[in-house]
């Protein structure tokens, strides 16, 4: 990773963190009614993995956090308008913040049912293969979702047809209140790759460089027609499952311990040591993020609600 790429990932991590903090404030103040699953603590892997994509690749993000959209370059204004159910977003109030979509950047949208993403990703891979292109599909999902049947059917179908799909598992240890060791028989989700004769790799999800390198390698394999890969990025969800989650199922000690491994200060420290990031740059990046968010919130607040009868539109093409 070169210096500018590292800074780009860092900038996106900061922007994502600040945006989620702001969204939490907006939701708690009742200014928006969005149903948001925060990704605080998982920004490193999300920003780093997406940094490895080409502009014409396809992305199926998971339901946790805003970093996917930030890293892919979707304007914050649009994300906020979707969150608030206003005009000016990407889905005209139909899908909320859970269904941010951006065809220009290959962002296909999101499955409301967990695990609905896998067959869609498989289909996008099929499309690339039929048309003979060298794009790839990056499909995020959580440790809990790896227990859906669609995961297994899709891994197998992609493997037998050698479809260019990278499956990236964000293992944050919890499926809402269910710890991974109780939901999942294998220790590492990556082990499941063996069942489909696919390479499976475990990386530290809080280390952007490890994640980036693994995704680059998997994408290369996909583009060269060798088929899918499975990457498991170990991480931790620092906030509750949703904004407002009482989070009563985890001990405070456990959460405290993981805050000490918050990827943002760790990456800052590393970049500072390498001489990539100075204190003044840090404050500049933070101020820049806040200013961007202020502008986006202001834009969102001026947007009108959709016409009520537009609820009847978009069923059929």
């Amino acid at each position: 990773m070169d210096r500018s790429l590292k800074l780009q990932i860092y900038r996106n991590m900061i922007l994502s963190r600040r945006l989620e903090e702001r969204i939490a404030e907006l939701i708690k103040a009742g200014q928006v009614g969005g149903f948001m699953h925060p990704g605080v603590g998982q920004e490193a892997l999300q920003c780093a993995a997406i940094a490895a994509l080409r502009r014409d690749d396809y992305l199926l993000y998971a339901h946790r956090g805003v970093a996917y959209w930030v890293a892919r370059g979707i304007p914050l204004e649009k994300v906020l308008c979707d969150l608030a159910g206003r005009e000016g977003g990407t889905n005209r109030g139909k899908g909320g913040v859970m269904r941010v979509v951006y065809p220009e950047l290959g962002v296909l949208g999101e499955s409301g049912t967990l695990g609905g993403c896998f067959p869609i990703a498989t289909g996008a891979g099929l499309s690339i293969k039929v048309k003979g292109g060298d794009q790839a599909v990056l499909c995020f999902f959580g440790d809990g979702t790896s227990n859906r049947g669609t995961f297994h059917e899709s891994m197998n179908l992609c493997a037998v047809r050698k479809l260019p799909v990278v499956f990236l598992c964000e293992n944050n240890g919890w499926a809402v209140s269910m710890p991974t060791e109780r939901s999942t028989a294998v220790r590492d989700i990556a082990d499941r790759a063996k069942g489909y004769a696919v390479p499976g790799k475990v990386v530290d999800g809080n280390d952007p460089e490890q994640v980036y390198d693994a995704v680059v390698e998997a994408l290369k394999r996909a583009r060269s027609g060798e088929g899918p890969s499975l990457i498991e990025a170990k991480t931790y969800r620092l906030w509750g499952h949703w904004i407002g989650d009482p989070d009563s199922y985890r001990s405070r000690e456990e959460v405290e311990k993981h805050w000490r491994h918050d990827p943002i200060p760790a990456f800052e420290e590393k970049l500072a040591k390498e001489g990539v990031l100075t204190d003044s740059m840090r404050s500049e990046i933070d101020a820049e993020a806040r200013a961007k968010i202020d502008r986006a919130v202001e834009f969102m607040q001026k947007q009108p609600s959709p016409r009520p009868d537009s609820a009847l539109e978009d069923v059929f093409a």
Partner: peptide, 18 residues
């Protein structure tokens, strides 16, 4: 393969992508 979820869903994914 006998994977209706995957291949019907893949039909949706393929239709989304052209």
């Amino acid at each position: 393969p006998i994977s209706e979820n995957a291949f019907v869903g893949a039909g949706v994914g393929a239709a989304l992508t052209g």
